[in-house]
């Protein structure tokens, strides 16, 4: 059972990674916490659900959903962050305004779904199981692990090796210096919000599919985990977020499997405190981070 539980944890963790990457990316670039990230994730699942039941092929529904959540995230930037960004001490007002956007999106979803739990129709994705060295693994789990691995690699390549990625990191490090070098910070913000939103949307679809459940509050537990991931991994660090997500997924699986019920959250936060005790800046601290330091 141990290896099976580690596999379960890795699958859950890889979806946490998808979710947390966007969150940490926005934090890295803006030094602002986007509380509406959970609602964006939820919106991804909702949009793909309604596309699917109205007859759109599933892959197209995913694509449409990612595009839509990318745009929602841009809207969040324009509504909740843009005006605040230009003033000092934006952290708290931005936090409040993003919570506001979160509440609006959640209320809309509650109305649309009439508070019901939705799920993708049976057969949206083929249910197949494979026996791999005594491990029971579903086709969906394999696809999720592969998709997340490819996307994470693509994101890292994008940030590290492309001109746009350099601009993102330049803005993250020092927005004013970047502007003096010709970097259009507004456009960088819009693009990072789009990427973060699209990744969150995809995570929503995958979670909705993997765990047969789409509901208006589904973003909340993931937001809480994203905080843990971002703190354990190191604020703004992409690699840190990935490692911490997988660590969190596996820890959680093992805690459910081997410890008395109800201790899971205590264990997760215990892990958080332990990491902070040994490495106050998180596993990947500021070294190699996409961005470090505080908002300027």
């Amino acid at each position: 059972m141990l290896s099976q539980q580690i596999l379960n944890g890795l699958v859950s963790g890889s979806v946490y990674a998808l979710f947390s990457l966007g969150f940490t990316l926005i934090f890295g670039v803006q030094k602002l916490l986007n509380f509406a990230h959970g609602a964006t994730f939820m919106a991804g699942a909702f949009i793909a659900y309604y596309c699917t039941i109205s007859g759109l092929p599933f892959l197209l529904a995913i694509g449409f959903s990612m595009l839509a959540t990318g745009l929602i995230a841009i809207l969040i930037d324009l509504i909740a962050f843009r005006t605040l960004r230009n003033r000092g001490n934006a952290e708290f007002p931005a936090l409040v305004s993003s919570i506001g956007v979160d509440l609006i999106l959640v209320s809309i979803a509650q109305q649309v779904s009439k508070t019901q739990v939705l799920n993708f129709p049976f057969g949206t994705f083929p249910i197949k199981f494979y026996d791999l060295f005594g491990l029971r693994i579903s086709l969906l789990q394999i696809v999720i692990l592969a998709v997340v691995a490819v996307l994470v690699a693509a994101l890292i390549f994008y940030l590290r090796k492309t001109t746009f990625g350099r601009q993102v990191r330049a803005v993250a490090t020092n927005e004013r210096a970047a502007a003096l070098l010709g970097v259009n910070a507004q456009s960088v913000y819009l693009q990072t919000f789009f990427i973060a939103g699209a990744l969150a949307g995809l995570a929503g679809v995958l979670i909705g599919l993997l765990f047969n459940s789409i509901q208006f509050l589904m973003g909340e537990p993931y937001m809480l985990r994203a905080f843990v991931v971002v703190v354990i991994g190191g604020l703004g660090s992409v690699q840190g977020a990935i490692v911490a997500s997988l660590l969190l997924g596996v820890t959680q699986s093992l805690a459910v499997a081997y410890l008395p019920s109800g201790l899971t959250d205590a264990i997760i936060f215990g892990l958080l405190f332990l990491v902070l005790l040994v490495r106050p800046n998180g596993l990947f601290g500021d070294i190699n981070a996409v961005a470090g330091g505080t908002r300027q």
Binding site: T163, R166, R169, A170, N174, A178, L181, V183
Partner: peptide
């Protein structure tokens, strides 16, 4: 840009 290499700083300059 303190977190980036010398080369990367110069590349950002190209923008």
């Amino acid at each position: 840009l303190g977190d980036m290499s010398v080369y990367e700083n110069l590349q950002v300059g190209l923008i």
